[in-house]
Simulated assay, not measured.
Amino acid sequence: MKLSSDLRAFEGRIGYEFKDPELLIRALTHGSISSSTRPDNQRLEFLGDRVLGLVMAERLLEDDPKSAEGVLAPRYNALVRKEACADVAREVGLGEVLKLGRSEQKTGGRRKLALLGDAMEAVIAAVYRDAGFDVARDMVLRLWGDRIGKVEADARDPKTSLQEWAQARKLAPPKYVEVAREGPDHAPEFTIEARLDNGKVAQARANSKRQAEQAAAKALLDALESAK
């Protein structure tokens, strides 16, 4: 099978040419356009998440042989979370080659964090399936680049940081309440409100509850910081 010119250009941006082009096409196929003869990228995303995790865990252990797990874990989380994957996806122009249904295209699917992050993980799995772990690892390390060395030792996801903020002030753990859900079943958008016992709240929207909770926690942390 011969790939289109835009997919060939994408191969150039990630630095890998597929022996089995069908793997790349599947990695870029969103559920909104899949069919019985055209599978989507969900299974590859599941695998790619694990490949990415192993790559980053291995690299962090190599780069810092003395730190305890409690120090390494936040760095690891910062490198493998959907936000990081989506950032890399944007850098390589993944959104431009995503295969989406009409509804997703109309609602800005090529720019959505969840879709980009999932597809990036699927591409990692596709490379792993096509060429093995060593090649996939080399691609991941190349694309993540300076992020690995620059990740902060005290990196925390926003929900963890907000919980620690509350605990330090003897408040109950933050609550996350779903206040709205919109969009079709295959591409929902959640609005989540983060709440603290002191009455402070903040809302955020995203394509998954987890991402919306993280975004709401970050919004609340930013508000607390600006109020100092």
Rank of each mutant, 00 (worst) to 15 (best):
V201C: 07
M139H: 03
R8Y: 03
R110S: 11
R169S: 12
L47E: 14
R38W: 14
A194S: 13
I148Y: 10
E96K: 13
K150I: 03
M1I: 08
I33W: 06
F10R: 11
Y128N: 10
F133E: 04
P74G: 02
E213Y: 03
G101H: 05
G15Y: 15
E178A: 04
E152N: 10
V92A: 06
M120P: 00
W165L: 10
V71I: 09
Q105W: 13
R169P: 09
D20Y: 01
E182Q: 10
D185N: 08
F46Y: 10
V151T: 05
G12S: 11
S36A: 14
E104Q: 09
R90N: 10
G109R: 03
Q211A: 14
A57N: 08
V51D: 06
G70P: 05
A131H: 03
N77G: 14
L113F: 07
S35R: 06
K175D: 15
P158G: 05
G12M: 07
Q167Y: 07
A136Y: 01
A187C: 01
I192M: 11
L44C: 03
E164V: 11
L220W: 09
A223G: 09
Q163D: 05
P184Y: 06
S5N: 13
L98W: 01
S67K: 12
D87C: 01
V201T: 14
A215P: 01
I25N: 02
V135R: 02
Q42E: 15
I192N: 00
R102K: 08
M139D: 03
R137A: 13
L54C: 01
S67R: 11
D146A: 15
L143S: 02
D146W: 12
E91Y: 01
E83Y: 04
A27D: 12
A73K: 11
G117H: 07
S161H: 14
M56G: 05
K106C: 00
G117Q: 11
T191I: 02
E104L: 12
A212S: 09
A122P: 07
I33A: 15
A204D: 07
K99I: 15
R75Y: 01
S226T: 09
D64A: 13
P74L: 00
L24Q: 08
R210T: 08
L113Y: 02
H30Y: 14
V51K: 04
L3E: 02
Q211V: 03
A122M: 05
A227F: 10
A78M: 03
F10G: 04
M56Y: 08
R110C: 06
G101W: 09
K150W: 07
L224F: 14
R26G: 08
L72G: 01
D134V: 02
G149I: 02
G199S: 11
L72Y: 06
W144C: 02
R111D: 10
I124F: 09
P39A: 12
Q203L: 08
V88D: 00
R210G: 13
G183R: 07
A172P: 05
K82A: 12
Q42D: 14
R90F: 04
S226H: 13
A73H: 11
R129S: 08
G53Y: 01
V51A: 13
G108I: 02
L44R: 05
N207Q: 12
N198G: 04
L100N: 02
R26S: 05
H186M: 05
R195W: 08
